[in-house]
């Protein structure tokens, strides 16, 4: 009984003490920061360039960050924040990640059977992962695990596929991919080159039947300056992207829309 009373009294007294200290000495919360904290998404993806959502909200309140920097924030929320801060609306074009490789197990040759740790970065340390194409997706899911939004799926035939509707373009996957084949592209661009190998077409063909062989058919099919060649690899000019119909010109299927990739790769 005595212990109950002692504990209750101690609790009350220390609670009162804490309350008083906070009232007289505590930092006055910035009301703007509080409001902003409610509005930021809370995923802590780091796509804005700050340590997390709280740091971003703080930076916004102090005028060190731009409202449009958060990749996952909806348009209406950005407008609301702009109104709160009294700045002009600055929307960033929505971006999405694209895994630039079509070399799943149905198309690309594996030279070795890798049975080590199930992680791309670890596999890279063992003879480069054992895939014939040294630029190809290893399909062991380093990117999928890094994605805070669950937007990357590793298909059963070992390729990473991005679901554009879930991807916010934070870029976390871009930095963890040991093959450096994930690109951030504008969501509005309909087609992408799903190949990253700069090698000559003939060499690529020996390893992968879905590689860009550098035939330039897409460059000819698209309007001027929509498709370019960088060495033996076609590239979409994302400032002036071609329409989805240009994908029909590609003989290997390296040039495709993200939707087709989602459908075609075996699940």
């Amino acid at each position: 009984m005595i212990s109950v009373i002692v504990l209750t009294v101690t609790g009350l007294v220390s609670g009162l003490a804490i309350g008083l200290v906070v009232k007289f000495y505590g930092a006055t919360p910035n009301p703007l920061e509080e409001k902003l904290l409610q509005l930021v998404p809370g995923a802590n993806c780091g796509g804005c360039g700050f340590a997390g959502c709280e740091a971003y909200a703080k930076a916004l309140a102090e005028g060190r960050a731009k409202p449009g920097a958060c990749p996952s924030m909806g348009e209406d929320v950005v407008r609301e924040i702009c109104a709160l801060l009294g700045v002009e609306s600055q929307l960033r074009a929505p971006m999405a990640a694209v895994v630039c490789c079509s070399g799943d197990d149905d198309h690309a040759r594996r030279m070795a059977f890798y049975n080590g740790i199930n992680d791309c970065q670890n596999a890279m340390l063992v003879a480069g992962g054992g895939k014939g194409c040294i630029y190809g997706c290893l399909g062991l899911g380093s990117c999928a695990r890094a994605c805070p939004y669950g937007a990357i799926e590793i298909r059963a035939n070992h390729i990473a596929v991005v679901h554009p509707e879930l991807c916010v373009g934070c870029g976390k996957c871009v930095s963890v991919c040991p093959r450096h084949i994930i690109k951030l592209t504008p969501k509005s661009a309909p087609v992408h080159v799903f190949c990253s190998s700069p090698e000559k077409g003939a060499l690529k063909k020996t390893f992968c039947s879905a590689a860009c062989i550098g035939c330039r058919k897409c460059v000819k099919a698209a309007a001027e300056n929509q498709m370019t060649m960088s060495g033996f690899l076609a590239a979409v000019n994302y400032d002036n992207p071609p329409g989805a119909d240009v994908a029909a010109a590609c003989p290997t299927g390296a040039l495709r829309t993200a939707a087709v990739v989602l459908e075609s790769t075996r699940g």
Binding site: I117, D119, Q121, N122, L125, V126
Partner: peptide, 12 residues
């Protein structure tokens, strides 16, 4: 356990 591979990863 693939201990050496873990060590190699950490060293990298």
């Amino acid at each position: 356990r693939p201990l050496v591979q873990h060590m190699r990863r950490a060293k990298a």
